[in-house]
């Protein structure tokens, strides 16, 4: 994981707030591999997030 998927900045550094938001409130918005903004679709029971380079990831639920 090179980038924070909440704020899109390099993963090293302080992302405490980001981690908390991702745990409760937010789907990933930035690709963790390249920091591109992803196309995200939230649905009642989950989400999908697609990076134009690295493909799609989905929520566990």
């Amino acid at each position: 994981m090179a980038y924070c998927s909440y704020c899109g900045k390099p993963a090293e550094g302080d992302h405490e707030v980001c981690t908390r938001r991702l745990a409760v409130l937010d789907p990933p918005r930035y690709c963790a591999e390249c920091a591109r903004r992803m196309v995200v679709q939230v649905t009642p029971a989950g989400w999908t997030a697609r990076c134009s380079r690295h493909g799609e990831i989905t929520s566990a639920r």
Binding site: V24, L25, D26, V42, T43, P44
Partner: peptide, 8 residues
């Protein structure tokens, strides 16, 4: 219930 529009 469940997720919202852009937030979970």
């Amino acid at each position: 219930v469940g997720n919202y529009l852009t937030n979970l």
